[in-house]
Simulated assay, not measured.
Amino acid sequence: MSHCVLNQNAVIHGWERARGAFPFAIELLRQGIALIQLPCPEFIVLGGDRPPMTYEEYRDLPNYRQKCQELLHPIIQQIQAYQAEGYQYLGIIGINESPNCSISGQRGVLMEEFFSECEKAQIGTSFLEVPTWYSEDAQGDFEEQLQGFLERGVKK
């Protein structure tokens, strides 16, 4: 799951959509669904007081893609280790229109690398994205989308 789903403190200051974690993530934990939090390369590389940047700006940042790959290696290893123990991997939850965590449309830099690493490791990955309109105060029909994602993952 994208880092900021569980930690809105990592997003660009003033762009937070919840206090702490998104409400749906807290509910997943209440349901007993374990979560693996992806690292936030934006925060790690540029810090909390970074300016808003586009996909192209991150893509073209020297060594940024390599840093994403390095950050993802332990995540891929964790997924493989959990699968070897018989746990079910349901998929990834990203952030729509994020320069790093978007999955559909223009895939973010981190997600490009994540899906590439999953392919190399032969990890099938379904996904769900948090819509741009989702917030602590405006959850809309996202819970229905989340339930569909969970049900698809359980059937695999």
Rank of each mutant, 00 (worst) to 15 (best):
Q66M: 07
C68P: 01
C68V: 12
C68D: 05
C68E: 03
C68I: 04
Q69N: 10
Q69V: 14
Q69P: 00
E70M: 11
E70R: 09
L71C: 02
L71V: 04
L72I: 10
H73M: 15
H73S: 11
H73A: 13
H73F: 07
H73Q: 12
P74E: 04
P74V: 12
P74S: 10
I75C: 03
I75H: 05
I75A: 00
I76G: 00
I76F: 04
Q77D: 15
Q77S: 11
Q77G: 06
Q77E: 14
Q78P: 00
Q78T: 08
Q78F: 05
I79H: 04
Q80G: 02
Q80F: 00
A81R: 03
A81H: 05
A81I: 05
A81Y: 08
Y82V: 02
Y82M: 07
Y82E: 01
Y82W: 11
Q83K: 15
Q83A: 09
Q83E: 13
A84H: 12
A84T: 11
A84E: 15
E85Q: 11
E85N: 15
E85A: 14
E85H: 14
G86C: 08
Y87R: 09
Y87D: 02
Y87M: 11
Q88C: 07
Q88D: 10
Q88G: 01
Y89G: 06
Y89L: 07
Y89F: 15
Y89R: 03
Y89M: 00
L90T: 09
L90C: 10
G91L: 00
G91R: 06
I92H: 12
I93W: 03
I93P: 01
I93V: 13
I93H: 04
I93A: 07
I93L: 09
G94F: 01
N96I: 01
E97M: 10
E97I: 08
E97H: 15
E97D: 08
E97Q: 15
E97V: 14
S98F: 03
S98A: 05
S98M: 03
S98C: 08
P99E: 06
P99Y: 01
P99I: 07
N100D: 06
N100F: 00
C101V: 05
C101I: 00
S102Q: 00
I103E: 01
S104R: 12
G105R: 04
Q106K: 12
Q106D: 13
R107L: 03
G108H: 06
G108L: 04
V109L: 08
V109N: 07
L110K: 05
L110W: 03
M111W: 11
E112Y: 13
E112Q: 15
E112W: 09
E112L: 07
E112K: 08
E113Q: 15
F114S: 06
F115Y: 15
F115M: 11
S116G: 13
S116V: 14
S116N: 14
S116A: 15
S116I: 12
E117I: 10
E117N: 09
C118T: 11
C118W: 00
C118E: 07
C118L: 11
E119N: 13
E119A: 13
K120N: 09
K120G: 01
A121W: 08
A121C: 04
A121F: 08
A121Q: 02
A121L: 06
Q122M: 09
Q122P: 02
Q122I: 10
I123A: 05
